[in-house]
Simulated assay, not measured.
Amino acid sequence: MIDNSEKLKIGNKSFSSRLMLGTGKYKNLETAVKSIETSDCEIVTVAIRRLPTNLHNDSNNFLNTLNWKKLWLLPNTAGSQTAEEAIRMAFLGHELACQIGQEDNFFIKLEVISDPKYLLPDPIGTLKAAEFLVKKGFTVLPYINADPMLALHLEDLGCATVMPLGSPIGSGQGLNNLANIKIIIENSSIPVIVDAGIGTASEAAMAMELGVDGVLLNTAVSQSKNPEKMAYAMNLAVKSGRLAYCAGRMEKKIYASSSSPMNLLSKI
């Protein structure tokens, strides 16, 4: 039997699934919940700005419909244009985690984005916010450009992961930064999660085959024609990509090589 039980460790938490899902852009609440369930993901990220300050006063809120005994909340600071805004959002994120019974949850997906057109993360603001939040005890998962040197600086600060984008968020362009992502994987001693740009299951599998530790995506599922089916496809893609990486692909060769050697044929 194939053993694929190696868990993804982020901070002091371990997860069986290496797929993480966002919660935006779904057509309705039911589709979002079913897609999350079908994906078998264990980490769900939610923009803090989209949530009320008190979940208990809003019984119809999305977070109240999910099973938080099986899922781990990853609040994100989406919409923050400065380090200061992101820091404030991080503390609100922990308060929201407490409201769903995850008092020990100090995870934060750190996004500092001041570019309104391409939504590219601000490296200086990200570094500044990450340093502060790590010192305050947060488990920081920073969303970054595929910049190998920035990734090393964030690791040195104590971030729990680095999350380079495959291509601009929500674009579905796929993995346009392969060379730099490979360098980040090679240099990193913390998990590398590809975040943003993936449009379909084959791209998720490709990311995992490179050796990334996980994939975070949203639009590829929520904006597909059948989100529930695409969520399942992503589930399988991440698992198969991880298995392929662990198995090790064959060496590429210039010339053809018979799959049935002649010395074997002669014995038949």
Rank of each mutant, 00 (worst) to 15 (best):
I2G: 00
I2A: 00
D3I: 04
K7E: 02
L8E: 01
K9A: 05
G11Y: 03
G11A: 02
S14L: 13
L19Q: 07
K25N: 01
V33K: 12
E42L: 08
E42G: 14
I43W: 00
V46P: 00
I48P: 05
L51V: 11
P52Y: 10
P52I: 08
L55V: 04
N57A: 11
S59R: 14
N60R: 02
N61C: 04
L63Q: 03
K69I: 01
K70M: 03
L71K: 06
S80F: 06
Q81T: 13
T82Q: 08
A86I: 11
M89P: 02
M89V: 12
A97N: 15
A97S: 15
C98P: 03
Q99W: 12
I100K: 06
F107K: 09
F107G: 06
E111R: 10
K117E: 11
L119Y: 14
P121K: 05
T126A: 09
L127V: 13
K128C: 07
A130K: 04
E131H: 11
F132H: 14
V134M: 05
K135S: 10
F138V: 11
F138T: 10
T139K: 02
P142D: 12
Y143I: 01
N145T: 13
N145S: 08
A146C: 04
G158L: 02
A160S: 14
A160Q: 09
T161L: 06
T161E: 00
I169K: 08
G172Q: 14
L175M: 07
N176S: 10
N177V: 06
A179Y: 07
N180P: 02
I181N: 01
I181Y: 03
I183R: 13
I193T: 07
I193P: 00
I193H: 08
T200K: 15
A201N: 09
A201I: 03
A204E: 03
A205K: 11
L210W: 05
V212L: 07
G214P: 02
V215Q: 12
L216A: 10
V221I: 15
Q223R: 14
S224P: 13
P227W: 15
P227H: 14
E228T: 15
Y232F: 15
A233R: 15
L236F: 13
A237P: 06
L243G: 05
Y245C: 09
R249V: 11
R249C: 06
E251T: 12
K253Q: 08
K253C: 01
S258L: 07
M262S: 11
